[in-house]
């Protein structure tokens, strides 16, 4: 299918009319918007509709799924939307379209809508729209999956599946890295962190422990304050990160 995005006015009108549309969010759909060509724009970008539809029937564990259980949906969304560029992936109109159309069923299954109407309105505004950077990266039912996969897809030393396994094993890993944009942005630092965590993943997964990882990130922040780590050779960067993990492990023991 050709990817579509809602027009800006449609997104704004959906956002302001959540209360009137609660029943559609709970059990109906927004197919009428897809039938009116003045509501959307069709992009010249192909998306794999079958894969997206399969996401709707993906088994989602009761309660809140763990980070690790988001590996499969992340891979599916990224695989189906492989032609989406980072530029487009920052566009709220795209994610609002997907959560209100082909991925509406997945969105409400993954983020069940509360029974209380007031809570439901807040919940829908958070998980079915993507106005801010935080919403795009963390809250929107679909965009968060694409961005996690995109960040991991940049790894050259680990295949995306493995990088996601490591990245999403503990929610703390994802949060620690995403909350420090310089670390996530700098591919060499991100790669080196992933490689170290991958080794621990195979062994005893000790380095995934919250206090150890936080300690390592703090040490990287401190070093990054006076040194430009990107100019260091790979071996030196790896040695610094190894040392930080070992020191923090000893401190925690």
């Amino acid at each position: 299918m050709k990817l579509r995005i809602y027009k800006g006015r449609v997104v704004e009108s959906l956002r302001s009319d959540i209360a009137e549309h609660l029943e559609l969010y709970r059990s109906g759909d927004f197919a009428y918007l897809d039938q009116d060509s003045s509501c959307y724009m069709e992009l010249g970008i192909e998306a794999d509709e079958e894969v997206l539809k399969n996401l709707n029937s993906l088994a989602i564990p009761e309660g809140r799924p763990s980070s690790a259980e988001e590996v499969a949906p992340s891979l599916m969304v990224f695989g189906a939307l492989t032609n989406v560029t980072p530029y487009l992936a920052r566009d709220e109109r795209l994610w609002t379209y997907l959560t209100h159309s082909v991925l509406l069923a997945y969105s409400r299954k993954r983020w069940p809508i509360p029974d209380d109407n007031e809570e439901a309105i807040k919940h829908i505004r958070t998980h079915f729209f993507a106005r801010s950077a935080r919403q795009i990266e963390r809250d929107n039912a679909v965009s968060r999956l694409w961005w996690m996969a995109y960040i991991c897809s940049r790894s050259q030393s680990l295949p995306i599946e493995r990088a996601l396994d490591v990245f999403l094993l503990q929610s703390d890993v994802r949060a620690s890295i995403i909350e420090r944009p310089t670390t996530a942005q700098s591919l060499r630092i991100f790669e080196s962190l992933l490689r170290h965590l991958d080794r621990s993943y195979e062994k005893d997964q000790k380095w995934f422990e919250r206090r150890i990882l936080r300690g390592v990130m703090e040490e990287l922040n401190r070093l990054g304050g006076v040194k430009l780590m990107e100019v260091m050779p790979d071996e030196e960067l790896d040695a610094i990160i190894s040392e930080a993990f070992k020191t923090c492990e000893k401190q925690v023991a």
């Binding site: 980072p86 995109y150 310089t182 996530a184 942005q185 430009l228 990107e230 100019v231």
Partner: peptide
Amino acid sequence: AKYVTVISCRDTYLRIAEV
């Protein structure tokens, strides 16, 4: 020592260091 230009874009997670 070298000249380094770092171009970074928070929104798209891009960071390039030209040395």
